[in-house]
Nucleic acid binder design. Structure first.
Length: 483
RNA sequence: CGGGGAGUGGCGCAGCUUGGUAGCGCGCCUGCUUUGGGAGCAGGAGGUCGCCGGUUCGAAUCCGGUCUCCCCGACCA
């Protein structure tokens, strides 16, 4: 036990090397967690990102959870090219208008200037739809449900690791349907069965859902559905969107099918995506002053067995415990770096967010016990050696629920209702604000924008999704500051 | 585009006003002692002080230019 360091009288200083407390400077805390949990580094080109093994392992688990649900919804994976003819982007007026400022354009290749510049995809609507036009001929070809895992590039002027980077990884789904109703139903199915389900049940982040205002809508979409999460500082993060594209792209790219009567019809389409931004959401929604807190389903390592000292049979006991935990189906790591101090190792695993830790040392072992520590509340309990595996399983199950419950409580506590739009901006300083859309309107939305507050989504008074025929005056706007 | 700030070892910074060829914390390497909550001691490695030019016997420091980054505003979404 180290004696407390001499500190000058006055305000308590954080321990040497501690993270900046969230309340003191949330953005700085975020940067420090990303760096010290070894999630990512900045790339050599401004705005680019190196995803480190710990961060990438989290992404792989998110990817697996999403991919399984996407396939369960009937979509198939495919891959389309990184390079898109610049002319494709220009075909859909709103689309190109939305993206042109952030396009990376390749003007040279093979040592000479290209006749037609090539853009690096900011999204693949245009390329994919040009092929949909070839593949869709008959109503029997519909629905056509395609997903791709890819990188995209949007030149960002204010990059932040995971949240807004020039290049990021994502999944983009693109579908074509025979009817508007079918397209809408599918966009909503993806929103609920894939996105909300993954975010809430796997990532443990409760989300607010609704549709975007015209101002916030995806360029080229007729309706954009969104999942908005609340971060630890009360700001909103758009975590995933599912778009109804109407027939906008179908008309431009000529995606037509012969219906049962042999009459040519334009297809109705959707597109939907989530990205590595979700890792940023995980950090900001669950993290605390000790670092990251990972839901067990996404943790690369669920439980670390920490050998306190290599004495008194502790190593053998630790090794055996690792075997038992693996046999019980857990992802386990043994930390036997006994030349590094106990405190350092504990702190490091807490920074990385590993949900459970078992400390195996000679002192406990002499009494036939080990210490089980749960990350989410940093609680410790002594359990008999033989009961450690069961205790860990229980701790992991409790962690998943606890993280969700905590986030849901924060969301509820920091969401307020106002009736007067003039109160919205001030109320949004601390979280989400629900204000009647009829009272706010597009003018109110513009006024809020001047104060860095945006309408995150529109929903019904009871918080559910609006039907196609829900009157505008029945809608509620959820407004917040956002990342 | 306007205003403000900053470029010094992997990271964070001091030194600059009053020129004398670089220092601190963390991290890193080696050894010993430690190890139940960010270990201690000793010894080391690592920097053409963003870049170009000028003044000077001598420039991180003074002067001119230039590049980059950050913050605020504007613009855009």
């Amino acid at each position: 036990m180290a004696p407390p360091r001499e500190e000058p009288a006055g305000a308590p200083r954080p321990a040497k090397g501690a993270l900046t407390p969230r309340q003191q400077d949330f953005p700085r805390w975020y940067q420090e967690v990303v760096a010290r949990a070894e999630l990512a580094d900045n790339g050599p080109v401004r705005g680019t990102m190196v995803i480190r093994p710990w961060g990438f392992a989290i992404w792989e688990r998110l990817q697996a959870a999403l991919d399984g649900r996407i396939k369960a919804a009937g979509a198939e994976n495919a891959y389309f090219p990184l390079f898109i003819p610049e002319s494709f982007l220009r075909l859909e007026a709103e689309h190109v208008e939305g993206f042109s400022p952030e396009l990376a354009v390749v003007t040279h290749g093979g040592g000479k200037q290209l006749e037609e510049p090539v853009v690096v995809r900011p999204t693949s609507e245009t390329v994919i739809n040009s092929y949909f036009a070839k593949w869709v001929q008959s109503h029997r070809d519909l629905p056509l449900l395609i997903n791709q895992w890819a990188n995209v590039v949007r030149w960002e002027l204010r990059p932040r690791l995971f949240l807004r980077t020039t290049e990021f990884l994502w999944q983009e789904g693109h579908t074509a349907h025979a009817t508007e109703a079918d397209a809408r139903a599918y966009a909503l199915r993806i929103l609920r069965d894939v996105y909300v389900d993954t975010m809430e049940r796997v990532a443990g982040i409760p989300v607010v859902t609704g549709h975007k205002t015209a101002r916030e809508r995806f360029a080229g979409a007729t309706r954009t559905w969104t999942c908005e999460g609340m971060m630890g500082d009360g700001k909103a993060l758009q975590m995933g969107t599912s778009h109804e594209l109407g027939q906008n792209f179908a008309r431009v790219f000529g995606i037509q099918y012969a219906d049962e009567q042999g009459v040519l019809q334009y297809a109705w389409q959707t597109s939907w995506g989530v990205s590595t931004r979700l890792i940023g959401a995980l950090v900001m929604a669950h993290g605390d002053d000790a670092g990251l807190r990972l839901p067990p389903d996404l943790a690369p390592v669920e439980v670390v067995v920490l050998l306190v000292r290599d004495e008194g049979g502790a190593r053998a006991a630790a090794t055996q415990l690792v075997d038992e935990l693996v046999a019980a189906g857990h992802r386990v790591r043994l930390d036997d770096r006994v030349d590094t101090s106990f405190g350092r190792r504990s702190v490091d695993w807490e920074l990385k967010g590993v949900p459970a830790r078992v400390e195996v040392g000679p002192r406990d072992l002499a009494e036939g016990i080990v210490t089980v520590v749960t990350r989410h509340d940093r609680s410790k309990s002594s359990v008999p050696v033989g009961g450690a595996t069961v205790a860990v399983s229980e701790a992991l199950a409790a962690t998943g629920a606890a993280l969700y419950d905590e986030a849901a409580a924060t969301l509820a506590r920091r969401t307020t209702d106002v009736v007067d739009p003039s109160q919205a901006a001030e109320a949004a300083a601390g979280g989400f604000v629900r204000v009647p859309w009829a009272a706010l309107g597009t003018d109110g939305e513009a006024a809020l924008a001047a104060q860095a507050v945006s309408v995150r989504c529109l929903q019904t008074a009871d918080g559910s999704l609006a039907d196609a025929d829900t009157p505008e005056e029945d809608l509620v706007a959820v407004v917040a500051r956002a990342y």
